[in-house]
Computed example of a mutant assay.
Amino acid sequence: MSGVALRDAVTGDAPALARIYLSARQAALPGLVERFDTSQVAGWLEGHLMADHAVRLAEADGVPVGYIGHGVDARHGPMVFHLYLHPDWRRRGLGTLLLAEALAAHAGRLSLFCIARNATARRFYEKHGFRIIGQTDGADTEEGEPDLLYALAPPPQHGETQ
């Protein structure tokens, strides 16, 4: 992707990632009430996501425009925890580029949660071969919204059956 560079996120990136996170959610989920402000989200990103998992940042001309956080969850195995793009950078291939990084890191096996009413994200993941394998009523989520558990497994190798 021309003009975009990927790199590992560092502590100082947390405020920019928080702004991307909040703006992406506002664009994709009208009416969603955010419980945390930019500095609180940045603190969580730095203290939890970035401290415990791989976070790759996409920059255009040195400006952060998207990121993916992925790692291994004790219950679900390899997971995408966050994949957010600044709204101006949607539908340009950046999400696919970031997702490819996580897929490569986890041998093509990933799962993720997606808020059920996020139609744009659902189309994106389904286009990339993810399928719904579970759902929740949202009672245990910070948003209080139902979400879907998606999974992707690599295609069977020659001689394997599904």
Rank of each mutant, 00 (worst) to 15 (best):
G12F: 00
D13I: 10
P15Q: 13
A18T: 07
R19K: 10
I20P: 00
Y21S: 06
S23C: 01
A24D: 07
A27Y: 07
A28P: 00
A28W: 00
P30F: 05
V33C: 03
A42H: 03
A42Q: 01
L45S: 04
E46P: 07
G47Q: 13
A54D: 07
V55E: 09
L57H: 06
D61F: 02
P64N: 12
G66Q: 00
G69M: 11
H70F: 09
G71W: 01
V72A: 03
G77Y: 07
G77L: 09
M79E: 15
F81S: 11
L85T: 11
P87H: 05
W89C: 11
T96H: 07
L97C: 15
L97K: 15
E101Y: 01
A102M: 09
L103G: 11
A104C: 05
A105D: 15
H106A: 02
R109V: 07
L110G: 12
S111E: 13
L112R: 06
C114L: 12
R117T: 08
A121C: 01
A121D: 05
R122E: 02
F124P: 05
E126Q: 15
R131A: 14
Q135T: 13
Q135H: 07
T136A: 04
D137P: 00
D137A: 11
D137G: 03
G138R: 12
D140H: 04
E142M: 11
E142V: 13
E145N: 09
P146S: 05
A151V: 08
P156D: 03
T161E: 11
T161L: 08
